[in-house]
Design a protein around this nucleic acid. Structure first.
Lengths: 71, 71
DNA sequence: ATGTGACTTGTAGTCCGTT
DNA sequence: AAACGGACTACAAGTCACA
């Protein structure tokens, strides 16, 4: 499994669990909505600093975004 | 702690454990010698696909490179 | 509310070196 | 063996209009 899919899947699940839409999550944490969308779909190849910023927004350790998602 | 330092510190430890120099590690796995050096020092901000490729070269899960290093 | 193509600007990634 | 510099090209960062 590609790491982009991995991070994207984890982000989508964790972001959903906060109860926020992509739009509100992006707005409240200073991201562009379409950029978050692209990462969740695995269409983007973000740098580790971007992933770090997302982890901070989710209030989790960056490592969690790289966990292998359950099938 | 910055995520670049985290990945760099982990890479340096894990790469050293393989017994390979930066130069040989890079050569044998198709990386640029100076780029590996930069990542280990935390001076670079690699994309997640590059970190994935490094993890594959180390034969570990990419998640391990994001673990919080021991102090 | 999300997906997608297109776009500009900045920097990731590579290659040549020297210290 | 590793840190570091300069220059270059490929592509990520960040944004927008529209479906």
């Amino acid at each position: 499994m590609d790491v982009r899919k991995r991070v994207g899947t984890n982000l989508r699940r964790l972001r959903s669990e906060t109860g926020l839409s992509q739009e509100r999550f992006a707005l409240e944490h200073g991201f562009d909505r379409t950029y978050i969308s692209g990462i969740e779909r695995g269409a983007r190849n973000p740098t580790i600093q971007v992933v770090q910023r997302i982890a901070e927004a989710l209030e989790i350790d960056v490592m969690e975004l790289f966990a292998r998602p359950a099938e």
